[in-house]
Write a protein that binds this DNA or RNA. Structure first.
Length: 636
RNA sequence: GCUGAUAUGGCUCAGUAGGUAGAGCGCUACCUUGGUAAGGUAGAGGUCACGGGUUCGAAUCCCGUUAUCAGCUCCA
């Protein structure tokens, strides 16, 4: 049976067998203003109906984003109801659905403990079992405020007061619990069979760090228990590929108490870093870039001139040398400006593309640090491009293409954001508008999809950001293209134009990897530690069956290394099964096994990470296969 | 920075009512010479993050500091 709530609290029931379209017709005629979940043929059907303001009917399933939102939003209300029953002194803030579930913010003397979370879950199960109907009603503003004042819910009162003049103020009532809410919701609590409370965390009221910190409970809900289990399994799997865990296991890098946020690169990690840099140099040379290197510590006067001293000082490390103030660079731009000014430029020099793998230091808040993803010291694969106004679009397109080619090589999916002027920024409105439109125009010319991120630009200009996902779906900004209207002005950059007059060049500031550290973090999670052969710290492991074959193994290793392949010999006194197990755990792409049979035939036995045991081959064939894979930077 | 949680040998973790620490892996030595995901025996290794306090006695209880984790805020 499907239940649909109509106007005035009337609920209409439909028998099994009725089609979705028939129901939709009825709903539109009945002007239902609710969502519902019904039972068809004895099974919970993942159906939801919503009637828009213009009476058009939307039908969607719980697999749709809309449906999931309604489902999880109801779960959030059920959690709030449970808390109201168990801990009546709690004040309620907001509780929306989110991508993977829902949360609710509460104000309470003490934060919820894990034991309390279990109690809440139990109470939620009761509420679900009670099959409580959700009823929607509306109140005029004054009554709505009075209603929540009587309930002693200050946060709700504040929310109502801040609603626009003409807003419909609706409430959803489920038994002994009523919440301010725009809906939509399920018809009843009953379909909420599969849910789980995940974690407790602090969150500022209205997301403002000046406000009180509330206690937030995160949870998730699915229509089927199997889906919930799959989600939990997915989280566990994601944990296994966490770059911090793999970084330790594969001996790539170390984060130590002695330097919070300052990563140590171990030999294996250094190979990856250097290999990425080698690749970076190759493609940038092809794209017409030159490379420079500027100092890490520069004088206060320079940072005052660049505007960093005023706008960025809190995040800068400063020092005193010979009684003068200096700062450790948080960005490479000012150094780049000084390099530009080393000689007079002609319009013939432009666009001038100047790359720098610059080590920058930024004092990030302690709570913001996260493995290699958010550090206090990192290498930017930076470049500044100096050009004429007319060259802007083509240059931006060139950079977008370059970044796209890099991400494609690794098989990354990414999304693009256009970030506009922030509050604390420098420059005129006109200049900002022109710069922002320049970026937007380039993206639109290329047909690149993007979202606008209002007010998230750099203090010196708008930017295009490229975001990559980590193993649990959090996204991290990597590539960025920033149009800088400030630096050329502040540093009085010039070039001599065709007509012999001095002109001001335009500058963009861009990175592909973003920070090499962060990029490596993403790579680790993306490949789950199974780096493509060209990046793998050890590309081939040579495993002699017993000590008798160490000499032969050494000659194999030498030949591999002679061909430019990173080979490692495991000549420990262990059985072959054990050595294979270890090499697999190290995610080595190839193993070459040598024993009596191989020595006699003057061949090697090959085992690859992708296929497993592959049989006997001539070493020269193995070398050419692996070399080819490295040369072409094959991804899998 | 904020809220909460955590901190035990190189790594992963036990340590259940406060009575000066355990395991597996790794490491070292010896035995074993083994053909595709863990061969055996023995040994070394820890002032239980740091600083105070309570107590006859603290890894264990309390306070503070630092770091890490989750989330929030921030992220040029």
């Amino acid at each position: 049976m499907i239940k649909v709530s109509l106007k005035d609290g009337v609920v209409k029931e439909y028998n099994a067998g009725i089609t979705v379209l028939e129901i939709a017709k009825d709903i539109s005629e009945g002007l239902a203003r609710n969502a519902c979940c019904g039972i068809v043929n004895g099974k919970t059907e993942d159906l939801r109906f919503a009637v828009n303001e213009d009476s058009s009917v939307e039908i969607c399933t719980f697999d749709s984003p809309e449906g999931k939102r309604a489902f999880r939003h109801t779960a959030s209300h059920v959690m709030a109801q449970a808390i109201k029953r168990l801990y009546p002194e709690t004040k309620f803030a907001i509780g929306p659905s989110i991508d993977d579930g829902f949360y609710y913010d509460f104000d309470r003397e003490k934060a919820f403990t894990h034991e309390e979370l279990e109690e809440i879950e139990k109470e939620m199960k009761k509420i679900v079992k009670e099959d409580i109907p959700l009823e929607r009603f509306e109140l005029p503003r004054a009554e709505a405020i009075k209603f929540m004042e009587e309930k002693e819910e200050p946060y709700k009162v504040e929310l109502i007061r801040d609603l626009p003049e003409d807003a419909v103020i609706s409430f959803y009532k489920q038994g002994d619990f009523t919440d301010l809410c725009a809906g939509p919701h399920l018809m009843s609590t009953k379909p909420l069979k599969a849910f789980k409370l995940m974690s407790v965390a602090g969150a500022y009221w209205r997301g403002n760090e000046k406000n009180k910190m509330l206690s937030r409970i995160y949870g998730t809900a699915y229509t089927k228990a199997a889906d919930l289990d799959a989600y939990i399994t997915m989280l566990e799997e994601a944990k296994k590929r966490d770059h911090r865990k793999l970084g330790k296991e594969l001996k790539l890098f170390a984060l130590l108490d002695e330097g919070p946020g300052f990563p140590f690169f171990l030999p294996n990690g250094m190979i990856i870093k250097n290999t990425l840099i080698e690749y970076w140099r190759e493609i940038h040379k092809k794209a017409g870039y030159v490379e420079i290197s500027t100092p890490i510590i520069l004088s206060r006067a320079l940072w005052e001139n660049s505007g960093h001293w005023d706008h960025y000082k809190d995040n800068m490390y400063t020092t005193i040398i010979d009684e003068q103030d200096y700062a450790v660079k948080p960005m490479n731009c000012p150094g780049g400006m000084l390099v530009y000014k080393q000689e007079m430029h002609s319009y013939r020099d432009l666009p001038l593309r100047v790359g720098e793998l610059g080590l920058v230091h930024r004092h990030e808040k302690s709570g913001a640090l996260h493995g290699l993803m958010r550090v206090r010291c990192f290498t930017q694969d930076d470049a500044h491009i100096f050009m004429t106004q007319e060259q802007i679009r083509d240059e931006i397109k060139g950079v977008v293409n370059l970044i796209d080619s890099v991400y494609k090589l690794f098989g990354f999916k990414y999304h693009v954001e256009l970030s506009t002027r922030p509050e604390n920024s420098m420059g005129s409105d006109g200049a900002w508008e022109m710069a922002t439109e320049g970026l937007r125009g380039a993206l639109e010319d290329m047909g690149v999809k993007y979202v606008v991120n209002e007010g998230d630009g750099a203090f010196y200009g708008p930017k295009i950001d490229f975001h990559l996902e980590d193993s649990i779906g959090r996204t991290w900004q990597c590539g960025t293209i920033q149009l800088d209207m400030q630096m050329p002005e502040r540093f009085d950059l010039e070039y001599i134009d065709k007509d012999g007059t001095k002109k001001r060049p335009v500058m963009i500031h861009r990175v592909c990897f973003g920070s090499i550290e962060r990029f490596i973090g993403i790579l680790i999670e993306h490949f789950a530690g199974m780096f493509p052969t060209w990046l793998a710290p050890v590309q081939v492991k040579v495993l002699p069956i017993s000590e008798k074959f160490i000499e032969y193994a050494k000659s194999v290793e030498a030949k591999l290394e002679g061909a430019g392949i990173r080979a490692a010999l495991d000549n420990r006194d262990e059985k072959i099964g054990f050595k294979i197990r270890e090499a697999r755990n190290e995610r080595v792409p190839y193993m070459v096994i040598v024993g009596e049979k191989d020595l006699e035939a003057n061949k090697v036995s090959l085992r690859s990470r992708a296929i497993g045991e592959e049989g006997q081959f001539d070493l020269s064939d193995v070398i050419s296969r692996i070399s080819d894979e490295i040369k072409t930077r094959k991804t899998c």
